[in-house]
Design a protein around this nucleic acid. Structure first.
Length: 429
RNA sequence: CGGGGAGUGGCUCAGUUUGGCUAGAGCGCUUGCUUUGGGAGCAAGAGGCCGUGAGUUCAAAUCUCACCUCCCCGACCA
């Protein structure tokens, strides 16, 4: 793509509306813009990152045997009344009436809708096990939207649901999802801590949270440096405990295995998996016939990833003073070509031919064709965080060379221009 | 919802305490000239109902009241 054709409104100064680092960088680098508190536009390069993340998720979900569908965002409120969760979620649900006076809601999550679907369309154990997932916009009227994409009122979530005959089947699918989640986050360049957690309004017994360490994390995870045991604590719990006794802090945060003091890490929740059991299927009578012809409730699990939130979590872990440093798999582009003088036909010709050759070899390439000074291009390239730059300037081209600059460590290597494409594609793989 | 901060060209802010010229600066934008390897220089321009409404006053960005919006701290969550 050509910079001049993509809308990338970068900012020199930090907008006042943002205080958290990832939010500032998202705004400055031209990835998102706010419409109202907790509601964001994904600009072209923001959307590209979103799509890369979704691509990774789709690959890993499909590889785990899940299949994708798309459920409605608009729900009849009656469905929620069946499980009583309209009350549990309360004000968090956006609710209104259609012109006939029917009460509807914008979906904050989809257990009821998918259970309703399966109740009406699945009847035999022969159709089990089954994992379905979607990537969709959720709506939650949050008490306080915060930190840009981290807590938004309209956000994108991947939610998967597994259906089994029994607990043994659920265990198997749960493990499958657990493993898939680890791969998703690692491919996104994200370090995560996994903790056993409370199921909250989702119900069910077992659940694990995938927590990304980040300075603006709202949850604290305790980690044992020796055995890597993790424990989740909400902040108030910690503060109350610390306040209630002088020695409370040390005693509470020692590892039950090693007796060593555990380290407190601030984290953001990016994924959460639950064994739901039959909570929803019983409430909604989503049953199937087992091999002996007996009617049984579906045994369910549900598995969420905060897709849009991931963008922020990744930036929190991958940045420096010059801007974002995208991990390669989620970067909006693999590389950016910087012809330092667009009025020089020789430079532009080389820039263009490199662009088309690299593109033909399967790379996502951005060509900065703007008539800007070299400094501006360098600064913007660093800010938007493309992993590699190909610098085409008069200095090196006169010697028959171009430069390859790596964003992460700011190292530069000189490459002969004639074999540049070969060397770059080789370096990439 | 409770507590704290803030609303002035696209962005960052000054001016408000102590009301008074035609509301300013930097960045960005437009045009021209010069420059050209890390956010260039000079010159000339465009762009504002000072968050909204009501009030006080000869006079309001500035004082009073109400409301709206955004950010931060708490309960909530992917």
């Amino acid at each position: 793509m050509f910079w001049s054709k993509v809308f990338i409104p970068t900012l020199k100064e930090t907008p006042k509306e943002a205080e958290s680092l990832s939010h500032q960088l998202l705004l400055r680098a031209g990835f998102v813009r706010m419409l109202m508190a907790g509601v964001y536009t994904y600009l072209p390069i923001g959307l590209r990152v979103l799509e890369k993340i979704q691509g990774i998720i789709r690959q890993e979900m499909n590889a785990a045997g899940a299949s994708e569908l798309l459920l409605p965002a608009l729900h009849p409120l009656e469905l929620w009344q069946k499980t009583g969760r309209d009350k549990d979620l309360g004000q968090v649900m956006f609710q209104f009436q259609d012109r006939r006076g029917r009460k509807v809601s914008l979906g904050p999550t989809h257990e009821e809708v998918i259970t309703e679907l399966l109740k009406n369309n699945l009847s035999s154990y022969r159709q089990l096990p089954l994992i379905l997932y979607q990537i969709q916009t959720k709506f939650r009227d949050e008490i306080r939207p915060r930190f840009g994409l981290i807590r938004a009122c309209e956000f994108i979530m991947k939610d998967a649901y597994s259906f089994d005959q029994d607990e043994a089947g659920l265990d198997k699918n749960y493990q499958l999802m657990y493993a898939a989640y680890k791969r998703v986050f690692s491919r996104c360049g994200l370090e995560t801590l996994i903790t056993e957690a409370d199921s909250g309004v989702m119900g069910g017994k077992v659940s694990h949270e995938f927590m990304a360490p980040s300075p603006l994390g709202e949850d604290i995870v305790l980690v044992c440096s020796k055995c890597k045991l993790t424990k989740a604590f909400s902040r108030p719990e910690i503060e109350n405990a610390a306040g209630s006794s002088h020695t409370g802090k040390e005693g509470r945060s020692s590892c039950p295995n090693c007796q060593l003091e555990m380290e407190e890490v601030n984290t953001t929740e990016v994924g959460h998996i639950f064994k739901l059991g039959t909570k929803y299927s019983q409430a909604m009578q989503a049953n199937f016939s087992d091999s002996s012809g007996q009617l049984k409730p579906l045994v369910m699990g549900c598995y969420g990833i905060g897709v849009s939130r991931l963008i922020s979590a990744i930036i929190e872990q991958n940045n420096d003073t010059d801007g974002i440093i995208w991990p390669s798999e989620v970067a909006p582009f693999d590389m950016i070509i910087l012809p330092l003088d667009v009025t020089n036909p020789e430079l532009m010709q080389l820039a263009n031919s490199l662009y088309w050759e690299l593109k033909a070899s399967g790379l996502d390439v951005l060509l900065d064709d703007r008539d800007e000074r070299a400094g501006v291009k360098f600064k913007d390239a660093d800010l938007i965080g493309v992993p590699a730059s190909i610098i085409i300037g008069k200095k090196s081209i006169d010697e028959g060379n171009i430069e390859l600059r790596i964003r992460k460590d700011k190292s530069t290597q000189v490459l002969p221009k004639d074999s540049a494409v070969k060397l770059i594609t080789k370096w990439k793989n």
